Simulated scan of single mutants.
Amino acid sequence: MRRRDFLVATAAAALATPVAAGPVMPLRDSPREMPSPPFVNGAGRDLMLDDFHGKVVLLNIWATWCAPCREEMPTLDALQARLGGEDFHVLPLSIDRAGMPVVRKFYEEIGIRHLGMYLADQTRVMMAFAAYGLPTTILIDRQGRELGRLVGPSEWDSPENIALFETIIAKGKDTP
Rank of each mutant, 00 (worst) to 15 (best):
E155R: 15
G144K: 07
M48D: 14
L119Q: 06
T64A: 10
D77Y: 09
H114E: 11
P74N: 15
R124I: 00
V24G: 01
G172E: 12
S158V: 03
V151H: 10
I168H: 00
K55Q: 15
P176E: 14
G54E: 11
P18W: 01
N41H: 14
A16F: 08
L27Q: 05
M127D: 11
L7P: 04
Q80A: 10
M1E: 09
E33N: 11
L83E: 03
A12Q: 15
L58D: 00
L139M: 01
F106W: 03
Y118K: 05
L76K: 12
E86W: 09
L93T: 03
F165L: 10
F129H: 03
P23W: 00
L76F: 14
A9R: 12
R113L: 09
E160A: 15
V90G: 14
D5T: 12
P68E: 05
V56A: 02
L27Y: 06
D51E: 06
K171I: 00
I112N: 04
F6W: 13
R149F: 03
L147W: 04
E166K: 12
D157F: 05
R124N: 05
L27A: 10
T123V: 11
V24L: 00
M127N: 12
Y107M: 05
V8Y: 03
P31K: 03
E108C: 04
L139S: 00
M48R: 15
I140N: 03
E86Y: 09
A12K: 13
L115N: 01
R2K: 11
A130W: 02
A13Q: 12
M25D: 04
A78S: 14
V90M: 13
P92G: 14
K55D: 09
G22H: 05
R124D: 04
V103P: 09
R4A: 13
Y132E: 12
D5H: 11
I61M: 05
P68Q: 02
G148W: 05
W156M: 08
F6P: 01
G152C: 10
I138C: 04
H89Y: 07
D96T: 08
A43L: 14
Y132G: 13
P101E: 08
R45G: 08
L47G: 07
D141E: 02
P23H: 06
P176F: 11
V8C: 02
G44H: 04
N60E: 01
S158M: 00
F106V: 05
R28F: 12
P176R: 14
A98W: 10
L147G: 04
P153E: 15
T75M: 09
V151L: 12
A98R: 15
V125A: 15
K173Q: 12
D96Q: 10
E160D: 15
G144Y: 10
